[in-house]
Amino acid sequence: MRLYCQIMLNAVQSGTTYRFHTFITTANRLVALLVQFFLWTALYAGASALSVPITQVSLDEMITYAVFSTMISMIVANENIETLSQKIQTGNIVTYLIRPIGLFRSLLFETLGTKAFAALFEIIPILVVGYLFFSPAELPLSHLLRFLIALFNGFMVYFLLTFLVGMSSFWYLRIFHLSFVLTHLINFFSGIVIPIWFFPKALYAVTSWLPFDLIYYHPLAILLGKADESQNLFAFAKGAAWIAVLAAASAIAWMAAKRKVVVQGG
């Protein structure tokens, strides 16, 4: 246990050296939030001008959605694909073969540590800015527990997905191909910008089987009080299932990778 705490602490400390990088990322997120603010305002204005009712969600709620989506992005996002592929390309990955704790747990706790740092220095400013400039709607706090569970699910799903893509570096050199594909699948299917409420029936069906909407859409839906119990149950079940599947795949990938390194010598 102490070991894990130490790893997390290290990540927090090294977080300070990546100060500039996080500053840039935060700036990027703020700009994206700004764009979304104007976008939704314009879209809703256009709809009301043409007397088209938008029943799924109101403008205020959409702005809240955007602000909290940005916040979730800060908690969930990681650079592990890049980290992993670099470690693999340079061969540094072999150090994980001889360490007492495995690569997976090491990486997980490193990520958690970095995120703890993010919680302090990135999320709070975003929330402050969000509430000052965009005046999002009030939130029903009763759903907080469910929100946290959903958030955790989303975090794990994303972590596992990035782990798998990172692992593929052992076999496939042009890792950025897979990384790109993942990014765009998430950009579209996760509800990061456009919530699933707006998806037409056919796409809705596809999305419900994929794990991506667990990362953004589901936690946000809970937060806005728009998820009923049956939806919650389905999402939690789906989350558990997908996490199990992805975790198994990760374990298999790591075993195969270890064998490859030992046999081929990296």
């Binding site: 314009a42 879209l43 709809a47 001008a49 043409l50 088209v52 456009i194 707006f198 998806f199 037409p200």
Partner: peptide
Amino acid sequence: GFWVLFQTFPSM
């Protein structure tokens, strides 16, 4: 993404 938006919203 645009296509999805325009399914609901009439104009930007």
